[in-house]
Design a protein around this nucleic acid. Sequence first.
DNA 1: TAGATTGTTAATCGATTAACAATC
DNA 2: TAGATTGTTAATCGATTAACAATC
Lengths: 211, 211
Amino acid sequence: MRKRKVPDVVINRLPLYLRVLAEIDPEQTPIISSYELGERTGITPGQIRKDLSFFGVFGKQGVGYEITTLRAELCRILNLDRVVNVGLVGVGNLGEAFLRYGAGRQKEVLNREGLVIKAAFDQDEQKIGRHIAGVEIFPVWQMPELIARLKLTIMILTVPAGVAQEVFDTCVAGGVKAFLNFAPVKLKIPAGIRVHHADFTLQLESLAYYS
Amino acid sequence: MRKRKVPDVVINRLPLYLRVLAEIDPEQTPIISSYELGERTGITPGQIRKDLSFFGVFGKQGVGYEITTLRAELCRILNLDRVVNVGLVGVGNLGEAFLRYGAGRQKEVLNREGLVIKAAFDQDEQKIGRHIAGVEIFPVWQMPELIARLKLTIMILTVPAGVAQEVFDTCVAGGVKAFLNFAPVKLKIPAGIRVHHADFTLQLESLAYYS
DNA sequence: TAGATTGTTAATCGATTAACAATC
DNA sequence: TAGATTGTTAATCGATTAACAATC
């Protein structure tokens, strides 16, 4: 894995480029310059060119970037040119909201990019077998089996803080490589595993500084 | 405002220190070293000392930090030593989940730190007047008035992308200083206003790279 | 060809880490 | 006093920005 070569901060910007490119009709505007893309993303043109240069040469000097090509390349880089199977653990308020979110307006966006929520997990007997926004809820003990069977490579953690590490470890053992963690805990993360934290409490508390 | 002096990245770490300190009983362990705090937060001891040094001198050489004092100082720095009033706009799936989240286990945490969700807003007639987790839902047109009356200084944006900028501008005009934005849009942000983005779609898409 | 815009290198900036004198 | 740990300075690291030759 030479992935370490590309800084995470660069990877985090690629989806933004993708989003902006998706808003343009390539029939009408087939080419975009780094200046125009910079205008629309809030990223400087130089930064955009630098970011893209980590992956190859996608533009034409004196001309710009062909939108269709650049979109395809970005999708390829992000693995979004194929289906990426996502799971979710913990169908409480937040988990349920997330399932519906992924089923609403954002579903089109996520699915267009190949991201599909395939299964949800909970330990509450009452919830097992229910469907939320078309996603079935399975018992947590079936996770190892279903991670393998459904090839889940991204997991959304919307579990209570107390069980987050345990659930996380189970997922890692099962082969999940990337996580979006909503639990307010510091996870112990093995090498090669990527975790994005979405810790609302910490975010609100730091906002208080500016209030 | 000399606030610009302290890097945002430092501010973002302070709530983490606060969380770890809150987990310790100061009766039993009254003093903590930067090494111990580093152990528990995953931040290097040097970094912690550097971060704190932006705000003053809180420790004793050869001894460490008095937990009660350090907690109080961090709260003061983050404005969490007084009540900080928070509003929420857009009571859809995500907005509702957030209200319940702020009412559940995390409510204790948030309230202990002075953060209180005081009002929610929506344009749907049906939702007006309802209460979710004890928070009343008001019509959006009452926002300017209620921001002033309830002194809302932080706003959580859980509105659809299409109206996010408009709602944001209204809040800014009303005097809101800090935002937690869940809408998948690039907001045009005036100077002096702080926005934290929680854009799930972008986060999931960048995770696909590691999947 | 002249103008435009890329890809890339070098310069700058800012944040993290290392190291240690100060001092409890 | 001796040992420990802070507060702070200097060195390092990495990311952003500026600049420009290459070239369409």
